[in-house]
């Protein structure tokens, strides 16, 4: 009877697959219909982000106008805006909202760019890190050169939008995530024939952190790319 006893069948495996990356696509190839319908790529994400920000800014302005009563804005914004000194007027409220929205734009751009880095054919970033003394570091692609002058180690990322090289470009001051950090100002954008040159100077006292600015079109004000500098400190 023992010879004929029932035995469990042999199994193909006895453990779960725990390594997600080995089994399931990380590329979003099985996206939900909603996601694939709504999004066509990182650029679309950034565009949506801009739309959100613009709507927000407009809404904020409208709300400020609506609440143009002394003290009303502080109630409206509660402790979230408690760093605002003095009487809250519609003017400084507007300035503050614009600041917040501008930060938002930079964030959206940064996140979108982070993904674009990974997209095939998108290789135009410049990335330099040095702990040496003052340096000039040309780098770039698609007709752009970035020169960095810094006593601190930095990592520079420049991401022009397609076609930006044919426009008249400028760069906003590079603002830190911490609003109290001084912006990196005076980024020069010059053109020499087909070649664009971006010059960035980082002072020794610049606090470590990420600083990001928009590359814009001097003619129509449109966003043509972004520039960010990660100051890593000594």
């Amino acid at each position: 009877m023992t010879e004929q006893a029932w035995k469990r069948p042999a199994l193909e495996r006895t453990k779960p697959h725990r390594q997600l990356a080995a089994n399931i696509s990380l590329t979003g190839s099985q996206q939900s219909p909603k996601a694939s319908h709504a999004m066509t790529g990182a650029a679309k994400g950034a565009q949506l982000g801009y739309e959100v920000s613009e709507e927000q800014m407009e809404e904020g302005k409208a709300q400020a106008r609506f609440h143009d009563i002394p003290g009303a804005a502080s109630d409206l914004f509660g402790s979230g805006f408690s760093d605002l000194k003095g009487t809250v007027s519609s003017e400084n409220f507007l300035a503050l909202s614009e600041r917040v929205m501008k930060d938002t734009l930079l964030w959206v751009e940064f996140v979108a760019r982070s993904v674009q880095w990974q997209m095939p054919g998108s290789k135009s970033e410049s990335n330099e890190t040095s702990k040496s003394a003052e340096q000039t570091a040309p780098a770039g692609g698609g007709g752009f050169t970035t020169e960095v002058s810094s006593l601190q180690p930095v990592e520079v990322t420049f991401q022009p939008h397609p076609g930006a090289e044919s426009r008249s470009l400028g760069v906003h001051d590079l603002r830190g995530l911490d609003a109290e950090s001084p912006a990196i100002t005076g980024v020069e954008v010059t053109r020499d024939g087909d070649q664009w040159r971006l010059r960035i100077g980082i002072g020794q006292s610049q606090p470590p952190g990420l600083y990001t600015g928009i590359v814009f079109d001097r003619e129509d004000g449109a966003i043509r790319g972004s520039l960010s500098v990660a100051v890593k400190g000594g």
């Binding site: 990380l26 996601a35 999004m39 066509t40 990182a42 679309k44 994400g45 982070s114 993904v115």
Partner: peptide, 8 residues
């Protein structure tokens, strides 16, 4: 971004 069908 995470929802977008790009290589993350």
């Amino acid at each position: 971004i995470a929802e977008s069908p790009t290589l993350i």
